[in-house]
Simulated assay, not measured.
Amino acid sequence: MSLASHLEELQRKHGDIEREIDQALAHPSYDDLELARLKRRKLALKDQMEKLRVPTRH
């Protein structure tokens, strides 16, 4: 998998999780633990995307 396609896949997953979070917040009985889990996954994906975008310095 190329770097660009991997980054696109991470962005797609990030967007999917963002929509899940929005849907959970739209329901009055959403699960706080599930929401926290989704937010952690979203942040982890964001961190992965940033690592791919920023060249490492040696």
Rank of each mutant, 00 (worst) to 15 (best):
H14T: 08
E34R: 10
R19E: 05
E8I: 03
L35D: 05
Q23N: 07
S2I: 00
R57I: 11
I21F: 01
G15D: 15
A26E: 00
K42G: 04
P55K: 13
R53E: 08
L45I: 05
S2T: 07
A36L: 13
M49I: 02
D32C: 09
R19F: 03
R19D: 03
K51C: 08
D22A: 06
V54R: 09
S2H: 07
Q23F: 04
R53N: 07
L33H: 11
E50M: 14
Q48Y: 08
R37Q: 09
A24I: 02
E8W: 05
M1Q: 05
H27C: 08
I21N: 00
P55H: 12
K42V: 04
P55E: 14
Y30K: 00
K51P: 00
A26I: 03
R40C: 11
H27Q: 15
Y30H: 09
E8V: 04
Q48M: 15
L45T: 02
R57H: 09
P28G: 09
S2N: 13
R40P: 06
K39M: 07
V54T: 11
E34K: 02
L35S: 05
L3V: 05
R19K: 13
H27P: 01
L33G: 10
K51M: 10
E50L: 10
L35V: 02
R41K: 15
L25P: 02
E50P: 00
A26T: 02
D31K: 13
D31F: 10
A24V: 07
S29T: 12
A26G: 02
P28F: 11
L45R: 01
Y30I: 04
R12V: 09
L3C: 03
R53H: 05
R19P: 00
D22H: 04
M1C: 06
E34Y: 06
S2R: 01
L45D: 01
Q23P: 01
E50Y: 08
E18Q: 09
S29A: 14
E9G: 09
H6Y: 13
S29G: 12
Q11M: 14
E18S: 15
L25D: 03
E50A: 12
A4K: 06
H27G: 10
I21H: 05
L3Y: 11
